[in-house]
């Protein structure tokens, strides 16, 4: 069965005909062509596919596209403005929060969700807020420093 999915994706309204069993991550990557959202573990463990739905983080690999009817979906592609990186993206770049980069879109979206809910997190808040995202390169210290730096810039 198929559904007409109407949602707001990265600021723009969209209507797409989607099969009921289509996962949001496949909708984003295959139907829309937004390949910034990554598929890591395929089972909700790694956090690479994290996007924001109505401002809250969610795994695109465990979410059915048709269940996003009427929602606001934001992916990593939404963060830059006019070719300029967002504060969180810039902080990940400057503080070496990204190495191989595969977890980075999910990390950045998790950080985005965290800082919207809690603009002035302490280190424990950041560790808790980023706990659903796994990185195999950085050892996390640089990621935490990146989120701290972004928070200082966004909400000094």
């Amino acid at each position: 069965m198929k559904t007409v999915l109407s949602l707001r994706l990265n600021g723009r309204p969209r209507d797409d005909v989607v099969p009921d069993n289509l996962l949001l991550v496949d909708y984003l990557r295959e139907a829309v062509g937004l390949t910034g959202t990554k598929i890591g573990c395929d089972g909700g463990e790694c956090g690479c596919c994290t996007v924001l739905i109505d401002g809250r983080p969610r795994h695109a690999c465990l979410t059915l596209a048709a269940a996003c009817q009427g929602t606001v979906v934001e992916t990593i592609e939404a963060l830059e403005t006019g070719g300029r990186l967002s504060a969180i993206q810039r902080a990940f770049h400057e503080k070496l929060g990204a190495q191989c980069g595969f977890c980075t879109p999910g990390m950045v979206m998790a950080a985005e969700g965290l800082l919207r809910a809690n603009p002035r997190p302490n280190e424990a808040d950041i560790r808790d807020g980023m706990a659903a995202n796994i990185c195999r390169c950085t050892g996390y210290v640089k990621i935490i420093e990146a989120v701290e730096a972004a928070a200082r810039e966004i909400a000094p």
Binding site: G44, T50, I53, R56, P57, R58, D128
Partner: peptide, 9 residues
């Protein structure tokens, strides 16, 4: 339960 993203939904 799980991590913050899981708990969010």
């Amino acid at each position: 339960v799980a991590g913050p993203t899981h708990r969010a939904y």
